[in-house]
């Protein structure tokens, strides 16, 4: 069953590969988002319990002891909720920065931005 972990690892590595090799600022932002999605998925898979219930106490449970025996782990879910919101604000900030760069240099290509910012470089 740990094969799912390898799929998530592949997603993460695709994201890392993209961050390093891509030349376009939008593509880099997309790669960062892919990394975030992979990490969130991994954390939720760690907290999952086979045949578990959602961590919401309903009338179906007799008491909290039975609930604690059946429910999945609420702790990674809370942390991943925080992480998702942080990721959207991070994406917004990155987009604002790249739009600013676009308005100054007229391109999203980091090689050309580098070339124009540094006149000594070819």
């Amino acid at each position: 069953m740990t094969g799912i972990y390898f799929l998530i690892l592949a997603l993460l590595l695709i994201g890392v590969f993209g961050v390093i090799t891509q030349k376009n600022l939008i593509k880099i932002i997309i790669s960062v988002s892919i990394i975030e999605a992979a990490v969130n998925l991994f954390l939720i898979f760690v907290g999952y319990r086979a045949g578990g219930e959602a961590p919401i106490i309903t009338e179906r449970f007799a008491d909290t002891a039975e609930f604690a025996r059946l429910s999945v782990d609420p702790f990674p879910q809370a942390m991943v909720l925080t992480s998702i919101v942080i990721s959207v604000s991070l994406t917004a900030l990155l987009i604002v920065i790249s739009l600013r760069l676009y308005h100054i240099y007229g391109t999203y290509d980091i090689n050309r931005i580098w070339g124009e910012a540094d006149p000594d470089n070819d």
Partner: peptide, 23 residues
Amino acid sequence: KVCGAIFVILFFLSVLRISGEGG
């Protein structure tokens, strides 16, 4: 808080298209 923040960010991105290059 989240409502205000998200709206402010998207609103500025929409204004940026109109106001052009200088910010």
